[in-house]
């Protein structure tokens, strides 16, 4: 499996994603510059966390115009796997690859561990997990409050596109467990075709006991299942 990791001006989690793929999974990864016009044969594209273009205008709003995003959109349209983490999730939403939008948190910037519950396992990024499995990993964002119209939210629920929800220690999606005010405690979603996945928490920063959690590994291992299917 070859993973292409896009580096935008202002990205800051691309090396963590590289570490997760290369050192922890033992797979091949390549850094892609945002001005590139070529995914270099990547099977999976990761849009990493950070503050692309300084979050000017809105988080992700400018990055979606980078030349590489045309290739990423084509890759997604052909069924290729695209994973947006944190700022990458914001970029994917702005680019129309994922539904909804990510707004300013209800209580400012949050950098802390959270627990998310896996809601569906029929995607390339959740297939190695189990439904209801709770994973602990960090968040670090100021604009992560998932929002969409009630009709869109209902449709996402009906079509099983809500993949991750913020939950408490008992696995319940409570108000207190919601770190940013996200509607319906939504931490991550996928598109209708289920090949584009976005989430605000950072699984790539939870792949080693030294980092405080290795709960993110199961998500990356899911990519392997998909790549070798």
């Amino acid at each position: 499996m070859k993973v292409g990791i896009v580096r935008f001006p202002g990205s800051n989690c691309e090396d963590d994603a590289f570490h997760a793929v290369v050192d922890q999974l033992g797979e091949e990864a390549v850094m892609l510059w945002h001005k590139d016009h070529d995914l270099q044969g990547s099977d999976v594209v990761i849009l990493p966390g950070g503050f692309s273009y300084g979050d000017y205008l809105r988080a992700g709003a400018i990055a979606r115009f980078s030349p590489i995003m045309r290739e990423v959109a084509l890759h997604a349209a052909k069924g290729g796997i695209v994973l947006g983490i944190c700022n990458g999730f914001q970029i994917a939403c702005e680019a129309g690859l994922l539904p909804g939008a990510l707004l300013r948190n209800d209580a400012g910037y949050r950098s802390m561990p959270v627990t998310i519950r896996v809601e569906h396992t029929d995607t390339a990024f959740t297939s190695a997990a189990t439904v209801g499995q709770c994973l602990t990993m960090p968040i670090a964002h100021g604009e992560g409050r998932f929002a969409a119209g009630e009709d869109v939210l209902d449709q996402l629920e009906n079509d099983a596109q809500v993949l991750f929800r913020y939950v408490d220690a008992a696995g319940e999606a409570t108000v207190d467990a919601n770190p940013n005010g996200a509607m319906r405690n939504i931490a991550g979603v996928c598109n209708a075709a289920r090949n584009v996945i976005g989430l605000m928490p950072h699984p790539e920063r939870a792949v080693d006991p030294l980092l405080g959690s290795e709960d993110g590994l199961v998500l990356f291992e899911s990519l392997l299942v998909a790549a070798h299917a």
Partner: peptide, 8 residues
């Protein structure tokens, strides 16, 4: 197309 987010 750019300046406002149509969702929010």
């Amino acid at each position: 197309r750019l300046l406002a987010n149509p969702v929010t």
